[in-house]
Simulated assay, not measured.
Amino acid sequence: MKAGREHRVPLSDEAVEILKELPREKNNPYVFIGPRAGGLSNMAMAAVLRRMDRLDITVHGFRSTFRDWAAESTAFPNHVVEMALAHTVGNKVEAAYRRGDLIVKRQRLAADWAHFCAREGIGKERSSVIPIRSKT
């Protein structure tokens, strides 16, 4: 649920393969197992980043990176990308008439994102990034 509405999330084939390899607990319906026999909390990703000592990264930054990539590197319409992020699309009148969730188009978007993330060079160590500084 996102903002009180169901939000279906299409997964790329690569994501499904990763999920199939995760350990499962009998009688636990959650994919990501939490420490107390339930699912993960909404703060789990932030906690992982803290344990990795990556205070320069935010959870929202992952969503922002996806949004920037989709806008700058793809031809997917804005409303498809916004729906993928579970954002409200359009005004109240448009929302009243929009009943679908564009799941097939969002599946293609998810597959393209997975291919982008799997590209060689993505996720290299920070030491390979050369900072650009202005002279002031």
Rank of each mutant, 00 (worst) to 15 (best):
K105L: 08
L11Y: 09
V93C: 06
E94M: 08
M45W: 07
N27K: 11
L11C: 09
V81K: 04
R126H: 07
N28R: 07
P29T: 08
D13Y: 00
E25A: 03
Y30P: 03
R126G: 09
D53H: 11
G90L: 07
E21V: 01
D101Q: 15
L22M: 13
E120Y: 03
L85V: 01
N27E: 13
V31C: 05
S64F: 01
A110N: 05
I33D: 14
H87D: 08
R8S: 04
G34E: 09
K92R: 14
F32G: 08
K20T: 09
P131C: 02
H60R: 13
T136C: 00
P77T: 11
K135E: 14
R98I: 02
F66D: 07
A75H: 05
R5Y: 00
S12V: 05
I18F: 09
A15M: 15
A110S: 13
N78V: 10
D112A: 15
R119L: 09
G4R: 14
V81R: 06
V89G: 10
A44P: 05
R119I: 00
N91L: 02
R63P: 05
I122V: 15
E94A: 12
E6A: 09
Y30V: 04
R24M: 08
M45P: 08
L19A: 11
L85A: 05
K2C: 07
S134H: 08
A84H: 14
A46K: 13
R108I: 05
I103S: 15
W113I: 07
R36Y: 06
R50Y: 03
M1R: 14
D13E: 13
Q107K: 13
S12N: 07
V16K: 12
N91E: 12
I132T: 15
G4K: 15
E82F: 02
F76L: 13
S12D: 07
R36N: 13
T74N: 12
N28A: 02
S127C: 05
C117Y: 01
R119P: 08
A86W: 03
H7D: 12
D53K: 14
E14L: 08
S134C: 06
G121S: 06
R63M: 04
D13Q: 10
A75N: 14
A44R: 04
T65P: 04
H87Y: 03
N27G: 04
E125F: 00
L55C: 02
H87A: 06
A111S: 14
I130D: 10
E120K: 15
A110H: 02
I130L: 10
S73W: 01
L55G: 11
A96W: 01
R54T: 04
F32T: 10
R63I: 03
V81A: 15
Y97R: 13
K20Y: 01
D13V: 01
A110V: 03
H79K: 10
P131V: 06
P131K: 09
R36D: 12
T74A: 10
